[in-house]
Write a protein that binds this DNA or RNA. Structure first.
Lengths: 197, 197
DNA sequence: AATAATAGAGAACTTTAGGAGAACATTCAA
DNA sequence: TTGAATGTTCTCCTAAAGTTCTCTATTATT
């Protein structure tokens, strides 16, 4: 059973690791809790270790870990909350994590740089990168990399109408392209989109 | 467990190898990290070898390699070419690679889920994830996470006008918000945007 | 009232991270 | 072959961090 302060120390350590990827120092913990003494903080940490909430890796600085925490991968970043782009709301702090491995892993993934504006209404801008999963089949509504007549490649939203295939740009000023199914070969499906600022 | 500097050395070596196809020299590593002593760098490299992050091929110059486990981190995907979203052009096949590590690396990065439509004209849609670099300073034109009056958080494009700060939504139907500089605190700058389909 | 648990301060000490650089050995390319 | 570039092995140093200890105060329980 944890005391009030032990609970707060543990919460702070948890949040710090989630945000910074490494443990805080004793002084950093103390600063957060308005405690000036390193010795006092040290006592709490030792107590939390004894109670099984924390453990130590080696004996260097910042050498404490949460118990049971799976090893952090570089592709996992903390999801700190939701931010309103509409009207201001407060950012929520929770424990979720975003695993980019889901987007990146797999030998069948590759990246294309998008050129042009035809998918702008789907939030895919000129210069964006799209992560594509290599496949020859796609569902209605997927954004696909389509090979037309074996020569040209384009990025469009797919709509199948029996023997005909509609490749729909996401841009109000452009019109859909309609082809017989045999002229269009799916090269892959967009599974993600990334933009670097 | 790696120390802060060990982590930086490893990141630099990883990036250097990805860019140049061969390992850096000790002096090159030192120059990147503003460390003058070869001996100090050598100590870090030895430590990373002992900790299994690097290994040596023979003993020539530039004779270090990334360990198998490390190079298996799939933050690098092949960039196969450009795809036209406007009118069809052919996909170019070249050797470039996209290094997502640049986006993901660093303990100062975190992710926010965007809620709302105010950045829609910048291609940031409701539900998108933005990768934020924690900082208190930003340049004109940056998309920033701004804390207003210490209470509310919002995502907007920054424009500074002397003592006044303009937070501009990227949505034609919304108007900019203008505040005295002291009411607005920058929490971070958007360095990337990711959408998972 | 006595006791135990909780809580904080801080002094004194040890250990670790990190940096500089000298001296020497090895490797590579002109 | 030879010298410059690179790698290796040292020692010395500092600041930051962790550890151990004592002293004190408060609060709840018996």
């Amino acid at each position: 059973m944890l005391t009030g302060l032990e609970e707060k120390v543990l919460q702070f350590i948890t949040r710090y690791i989630a945000q910074n990827g490494r443990a805080p120092t004793l002084v950093e913990i103390g600063a957060a809790l308005r405690i000036r003494s390193k010795g006092t903080i040290h006592r709490y940490v030792e107590s939390l270790i004894k109670k099984g909430q924390l453990h130590r890796t080696g004996r260097g600085w910042r050498g404490i870990r949460l118990t049971g925490e799976h090893s952090r991968r570089l592709t996992i970043l903390p999801l700190l909350g939701r931010i309103a782009a509409g009207r201001p709301i407060e950012a929520i702090s929770d424990q979720k994590e975003i695993n980019f491995s889901d987007l990146l892993l797999g030998a069948d993934r590759y990246v294309l740089e998008v050129h042009g504006d035809s998918m702008i209404d789907a939030g895919i801008l000129d210069g964006d990168l799209v992560v594509v999963r290599q496949t020859e089949t796609a569902e209605n509504g997927d954004i696909v990399v389509a090979l037309i007549d074996g020569g040209e490649v384009t990025l469009k939203r797919l709509r199948k109408h029996g023997a005909r295939v509609e490749l729909m740009p996401a841009n109000r000023s452009l019109t859909p392209m309609i082809y017989p199914a045999e002229r269009v070969h799916i090269q892959g499906v967009v599974v993600g989109q990334v933009r670097l600022y």
